[in-house]
């Protein structure tokens, strides 16, 4: 079954959407969209470095995304003007990555695959990375859910209950780096944030509790992933952007539908 590239693509897209759907809720609740962008853009630099040093792309992406995550986490603790710093880091890393790729001697690589994703070319090894990453994100979220939710609602409530909100923030940041590494092959560095935010935002109107919102977000992400893939196959469009289009369409329908219902 895994010999069929379409089956592999579907599994990859679905797995990524599941991981992004779970984490995306926290990204929305904590307004970390910029944060996701910076980590995702840094992944392009990771691709360049991996090619330059001849290591695996996944490893390069994970290391650079984690480094960016830790750097941003450190900065947010300083109380600096965070959004400006994030803008600088995010686009600085993206530009540096784009430049660095062209300086690698020998091959001219197809950067589009990393900017916009290339899910039709995922291998069994990629699938293992994606579903392994998804399992790790799911397990950590399950284990830390209550602490992270409390810290998200109010850092002071968390402190009073003996939970360190800075630690919860760090865990989320690291998970974000993990999702970026997983998603880059599927939707590409430029659209990862969309996959995090849009399903969660779509789920908001239909959920009464954080848990239901997360589950709905996973479901909506999954529908967008498979629907987008199907559209891409039918109309011969790029898969990553098609998935995001599908998600955005679901969001539009949900928003208009929600307004009409009221």
């Amino acid at each position: 079954m895994l010999d069929d590239f379409l089956v592999r693509a579907a599994l990859a897209a679905f797995g990524t959407a599941v991981a992004a759907g779970m984490l995306g809720c926290f990204v929305v609740w904590r307004r970390m969209a910029y944060f996701g962008d910076a980590t995702a853009h840094a992944a392009v630099l990771g691709v360049a470095l991996a090619l330059g040093f001849g290591t695996s792309i996944t490893l390069g992406v994970v290391i650079v995304a984690l480094a960016m995550a830790v750097l941003i986490h450190g900065l947010t603790g300083q109380g600096a003007a965070v959004d400006t710093m994030l803008g600088v880091l995010s686009h600085g890393a993206l530009a540096l990555g784009l430049v660095a790729v062209t300086m690698i001697p020998g091959q001219r690589i197809d950067l589009d695959a990393y900017l916009f994703g290339d899910v039709l070319s995922v291998t069994r090894a990629d699938l293992a990375v994606i579903w392994g990453g998804c399992a790790i994100v799911g397990a950590i979220l399950w284990w830390q859910w209550s602490a992270m939710l409390t810290a998200t609602l109010s850092p002071d409530l968390a402190y009073a209950a003996g939970i360190n909100p800075r630690r919860a923030q760090l865990v989320l940041t690291l998970l974000l780096a993990g999702v970026v590494a997983v998603a880059i092959k599927v939707v590409g560095a430029l659209l990862i944030t969309a996959l995090l935010i849009i399903p969660a935002a779509t789920a908001r109107a239909f959920a009464a509790t954080p848990e239901r919102m997360a589950m709905l977000s996973v479901g909506i992400g999954g529908v967008a992933a498979l629907g987008g893939l199907r559209l891409a196959v039918i109309y011969d469009t790029p898969v990553g952007p098609s998935i995001i289009c599908m998600a955005a369409a679901l969001f539009a329908v949900a928003t208009v539908g929600g307004k009409l219902r009221r």
Partner: peptide
């Protein structure tokens, strides 16, 4: 410690019922 803060802003993107809120963190 039972802490009652001066004000608690809940982000409008975060749906939470009173019942769920009472279950945090335990």
């Amino acid at each position: 410690i039972g802490y009652v803060p001066q004000k608690l802003h809940i982000d409008p993107t975060l749906p939470i019922t009173v019942g769920r809120f009472l279950n945090l963190p335990q």
